[in-house]
Amino acid sequence: MSVLNELYQQVILDHNKSPRNFRVMEGATKHVEGYNPLCGDHYTVYVKLDGDQIVDVSFEGAGCAISKASASVMSAMVKNHTVAEAEELFRDFHRLVKGELAGEEELERLGKLAAFAGVSEFPARVKCASLAWHTLHSALNTNETSISTE
């Protein structure tokens, strides 16, 4: 596979074209704005919590294919998981895009997230892939209403 196809995998192209959970959420427990001033990527991530259970996640905004697909995959993956599980995924994802995962086995455990493995070959794009995750992390852990990657 060429390095471009590895970056823009089918999963990413698909989620970029038809992002899941791409909507404003009424009655969200929390929403946080995430902004990457360098490239202008700009999203709001919404979460609805029931205790420490994430019952709904959505997002809206605009940005590059990598950032949008990442937000979409994230929203699909953390729904119906606990806050602690989402945080665990965030840590894995971070290691994945930094190219720090141990091997195939770990990659398999990540399911759809593994589509972002190619990002590690493009250091300039790590921030794009991580923007939604940082925003979600902020929503789950802080009282911030907006974050910026710079």
């Binding site: 471009l4 360098l38 490239c39 202008g40 940005g63 590059c64 294919a65 493009f122 794009c128």
Partner: peptide, 29 residues
Amino acid sequence: GIHPHDIGTILDVEGVAIRTGHHCAQPVM
């Protein structure tokens, strides 16, 4: 339908160096 950042990455893989972003001129954007 294609974000400038994605254009920049693909061009780079093809050996073409351009800049993408707001070019330190956000009011123009």
